[in-house]
Write a protein that binds this DNA or RNA. Structure first.
Lengths: 129, 129
DNA sequence: TTTCTATTACTACGGGTGTAGTTTTTAAAT
DNA sequence: ATTTAAAAACTACACCCGTAGTAATAGAAA
């Protein structure tokens, strides 16, 4: 439940880990190559730093380190979204959504979907009462 | 439309500027004191750095610098929300909202409101077609 | 005009980030 | 057992951030 703060490259690497479950530095590099080629040492350094913060763990397998995320994607989404809402939208998620709606951030199909999701959330809340 | 990236303290200071329109370093310090006391030099330094990035401007008034935001709150909200959506929610705003709904980030009243806002957005889109 | 004092400018420092080169280790191949 | 090559460890550097002390400046007061 701590504040999670991840920078650009860190996030890119975490995304690969979340996606693959576990990965060696080389594998991560391979995946990222599609977007941009980083030196393997770059990725390695970032992973070490993430490890120091207990955000990833690893075990050895032959001569490689196999890294694994120690925080989930959901947790991270939650924490980072929360920070944003807190910092920029007065702590109210609805203000954020309002902002998105005003900015026309959704396609037509998404809006329908959203409405359904909201109705479900309302049902959930009613059930709880 | 550039990527705007603001850190914690920077954001706090920008928020004061957005709120007041213009402000001297001392005024900003005064406002922030409610939350935490920063040395005036701290605020001054941050403002200088923001100025170097053209995020704030200033003019002299007597012996003080009066600072003013050069980017709007909306712009910043937009840019930072976009980054988040891009980085963590596959570029789809609805995924973010979905996440918020699953996490029960809304109060009952907010949900009603949201639904209305969505309906309005739908209407807007229909009109455009 | 000289002194005081608020404000700004300059400087600094520890820590994080992006980025990667160089050195060392070690499993694998010969 | 020795060589090789892949991977990791170590080191480095420029830049940004939070934070603030100290020095310089310039209105205001005396």
């Amino acid at each position: 439940m701590n504040k999670i703060k991840l920078d650009d490259l860190q996030l890119k690497i975490m995304k690969v880990l979340w996606h693959l479950g576990e990965a060696s530095v080389g594998q991560i590099q391979e995946v990222l190559k599609a977007e941009r080629a980083f030196a393997i040492t770059t990725i390695s350094t970032v992973l070490q730093r993430l490890h120091k913060r207990d955000i990833v763990s690893y075990h050895k397998e032959g001569r490689q380190y196999i890294y694994k995320a120690e925080i989930s994607e959901k947790e991270t989404q939650h924490s980072m979204t929360n920070s944003l809402v807190e910092q920029l939208f007065g702590g109210k998620s609805s203000v954020l959504v309002n902002h998105l709606l005003e900015a026309d951030s959704f396609e037509t199909a998404e809006l329908d979907q959203l409405k359904k999701m909201i109705e479900e959330a309302q049902k959930r809340q009613n059930d709880k009462t």
